[in-house]
């Protein structure tokens, strides 16, 4: 251990999975902060009354935004689970010993939570769309058309 040399060749991080997770954590973090600001604005519109608020919410109610919501869910879950991994490595005395296994376990946890939530979010979209739209509406219609204003019916 006396002659152990840990030298950095400059600006480069040590590479591999840990470096990509570090970059991934920053990218999802910045993206989530941007969405947070947007979300605060759209929720604040509720002070202007039901028409303004629901007019703003109607922008979100189509299939493209549903895919965006799935992406948002992925970002939140990935940032949260990777954050728990970082806390484990930082605060558990043997964390760095098990870091490769922790990477793998984090991925498994992410997949096991993300797949069922995605299934629920997508299937629920089509169920509600077909249930509340006029008879004869197909899955393709639900994907390509913005949803009609259900409340006015």
């Amino acid at each position: 251990m006396l002659n152990q040399k840990i030298v950095s060749s400059g600006s480069v991080y040590k590479g591999r999975t840990g470096m990509w997770l570090y970059i991934f954590h920053r990218v999802t973090g910045v993206a989530l902060f941007g969405y947070l600001l947007l979300h605060i604005i759209s929720t604040a519109l509720i002070l202007l009354g039901p028409e303004v608020y629901e007019g703003a919410e109607a922008i979100y109610k189509n299939f493209y935004f549903r895919l965006g919501e799935v992406g948002l869910m992925a970002a939140v879950l990935a940032h949260a689970i990777n954050g728990l991994r970082i806390i484990t490595v930082d605060l558990w005395s043997r964390g760095s010993e098990y870091q490769k296994r922790l990477n793998f376990v984090s991925l498994l946890i992410f997949i096991s939570v993300f797949i069922p939530t995605t299934y629920k979010m997508i299937s629920s979209y089509f169920e509600l769309c077909i249930e509340k739209s006029s008879p004869g509406t197909t899955v393709i219609d639900c994907m390509t058309r913005p949803l009609p204003d259900w409340k006015s019916k």
Partner: peptide, 12 residues
């Protein structure tokens, strides 16, 4: 908001 409810049902 997204799993136990659906945001399609989100209103005032």
């Amino acid at each position: 908001m997204h799993v136990f409810n659906d945001t399609l049902n989100l209103d005032y």
